[in-house]
Write a protein that binds this DNA or RNA. Sequence first.
DNA 1: TCTATCTAGTTCAACTTTCAAGAAAAGGTC
DNA 2: GACCTTTTCTTGAAAGTTGAACTAGATAGA
Lengths: 167, 167
Amino acid sequence: MTTASTGGPRWLTDEEQRVWRAYLHATTLLEDHLDRQLQRDAGMPHIYYGLLVQLAQAPRRQLRMTELAKNAKITRSRLSHAVARLEKSGWVRREDCPSDKRGQNAVLTQEGYEMLRRSAPGHVSAVRQAMFDRLTPEQVRTLGEIMQVMAAGLQPEGTDADLPWLR
Amino acid sequence: MTTASTGGPRWLTDEEQRVWRAYLHATTLLEDHLDRQLQRDAGMPHIYYGLLVQLAQAPRRQLRMTELAKNAKITRSRLSHAVARLEKSGWVRREDCPSDKRGQNAVLTQEGYEMLRRSAPGHVSAVRQAMFDRLTPEQVRTLGEIMQVMAAGLQPEGTDADLPWLR
DNA sequence: TCTATCTAGTTCAACTTTCAAGAAAAGGTC
DNA sequence: GACCTTTTCTTGAAAGTTGAACTAGATAGA
């Protein structure tokens, strides 16, 4: 299945193929599952829920748009649209940033906070059922390691940790 | 951090939270990365590429729509749109199913096959760099196990394996 | 056969994401 | 200040996704 070092591409071994398919299968099933669960129970897709969680954990339940986009790993454009929608739903409000007139703070409203509190148990339970209740402690530990390694390798350039002249 | 058994929701432990965030972080980074790579090199998102791969591996490079949707874990609706787009690009063609007049076969065209052959090495290499080249063999093995367990737990009902009267 | 039900696939409208373009403010240099 | 570059955020159009409604053909029972 693998090409000997003839300069051609290194294909995946049989085991790697199995793992890759299992990965795609499991991650898409889980993402779909959580999207449906949250759409049903909180009226929004998973990513939007994640934005509210970020805000809820931020100092005054607010974050600069760029900061929020960075945390959630989405583009500023996408965030603009998303916050517009969340604003229309009443869960987020925009405020001008006092120190930078270009800036906007996305602020979690009280309603948004309440909504989060109501739907958090169901969401945690869905995550638990899908992942943590099915894995051994050892598997959970290893999964953490693996995901850290992968994330590190995919980190977009420009992170401090990746600038050689800062090492 | 965890609620003692008071009947309240079982929150995630600190470690579980770390693992969950790492999981979300890594999986979104990887999906974004592959989407960009394939959009650039093959002119389509990752999921569309997956459809072509399925077709390429099918008996006569063709599959019934429903079958293809099931394999790719997407709705029939989404597949209809996707195939319409792939048809416009010339990589797939629809054919009426001879045995069932409701049915349609999605057929990989020769152009589609060529395109796949051209872009496969780059795609495999991207997957490799992001995942397999960074993990130890032991980690790859464990990742496979974990993903299988998770997928099994999320399997939509109605799969043969889940029908108790067939066991 | 007649009818009810089910299945395959498409279509529509509402929503989300992407990409490119643009407005406004900040920062740096002369 | 004048000029240029960068940063912040928004906008608009095109592409993609979703869920419900719909058409046509298959299937099963009386």
